[in-house]
Design a binder for these strands. Structure first.
Lengths: 206, 206
DNA sequence: ACGATCGTGTCAACAGTGTTGACATCGGTC
DNA sequence: GACCGATGTCAACACTGTTGACACGATCGT
């Protein structure tokens, strides 16, 4: 907020006197500690259920430092929560049996931390930045690689509907506690849901 | 942290009784005003984005009364947010063309307040009570009416997967701002997604 | 050697949240 | 009138995200 008399040029420049991100060795260490604690606590208790002070305490530092290093709780969340993925190498592959492979891949992420991350992201989608991130991930993982390979009408719409089907499956795994699905035989799940997805992949074919 | 709703046959307390839910006419009026304000604000700004004080102010009363009448913000949310529905009369109907009718019904709720309510509920599903409510609604609207009518193997699992597909479609409408789907031609959407759902309804049939 | 500067950490404070308890006020019954 | 329960008001609690002021240590120019 300074730089008024002589440095009029600097007033438009980004971050002049404000404390900014760490540049030294020590700073990078505590920043990483904060990030680790954030990933752990956000995954376990979600965005609303995790306080900045709890993250700071778990990282052995102060809540003010958390804000100074990451800007805000929301940006900390965005930087530390990994996006579920990657499906690009699957969606870019052969169309034959693609539905089954996608379901298999989603179910494979089940025991990983990715499900927890997806759950936290969806529940924090009040934030437009979080929403933007989810939609971008859908675009990158499904629409962009898949749509060009689809034949028949409405390839992009069909790719997005495939993404919708998978988000529905993720809902049952991550958002709602649907025991009947989480406990179901994996092969049966792949066969059923994979077939339903495959319908949209090779559309005009009966 | 209130766990008395069931027990407490009689209180040995000599004089003081806890202020409870309203019984008179005046109380019922302000309680209704609070409920109206809550429905409006929760739908517009979500659970986290709506403060008890804002609800009280909109209802022309005090935040303490909101808590006194409804117990907690969470219970207020549960009592005032309508569940999306009803699909029971559809899922209980004929199996032929059921997939298309379900998609049509979901898309029909699009311009109603039900989409907003679903969005708010999903984003508030940190609360186990909210989760319980969502899962119960899925059960009542899809699994219970549909599963008995399904022929072939795994009828209950298939009914739940149908519900998962619909929640995926709802995600694209309510959670993520997927313009390509919200702007798509309704008939095309019904044909595509309806067919994908129909696969699980009449399963062994090729 | 000094002092200035910068990166880093600590502390207190702000406005806002959900929730609770103490008090005020009204309407009706002896 | 006095009592009493239902309804409303106000202040306070502990907690949240965030900000600013200040203290320490190292590094650098002189």
């Amino acid at each position: 907020m300074n730089a008024d008399a002589l440095g009029a040029l600097d007033s438009a420049a980004p971050g002049v006197a404000r404390p900014r991100a760490p540049t030294g060795e020590k700073g990078r260490v505590t920043r990483a500690a904060i990030a680790d604690a954030a990933t752990k606590l956000f995954s376990k208790h979600g965005f609303a259920g995790t306080s900045v002070r709890a993250v700071a305490s778990d990282a052995g530092t102060d809540s003010a430092l958390v804000i100074r290093y990451f800007g805000s709780k929301e940006q900390l969340f965005l930087e530390t929560m990994p996006m579920i993925g990657q499906f690009e190498h699957i969606t870019a592959g052969a169309l034959d049996g693609l539905g089954r492979r996608l379901v298999d891949s989603v179910l494979g992420a089940q025991q990983a931390t990715q499900i927890s991350a997806y759950r936290a992201l969806v529940r924090a989608s009040d934030s437009s930045l979080v929403r933007q991130r989810l939609v971008q991930a859908q675009q990158d993982m499904f629409v962009t690689p898949l749509a060009p390979n689809l034949t028949g009408p409405n390839p992009e719409l069909r790719a997005r509907l495939v993404a919708a089907q998978l988000s529905g499956l993720l809902d049952a795994l991550a958002i709602f506690p649907d025991e009947a699905i989480t406990a179901a035989d994996r092969d049966v799940l792949i066969e059923l849901y994979g077939a339903a997805i495959q319908v949209l992949i090779d559309w005009p074919t009966a």
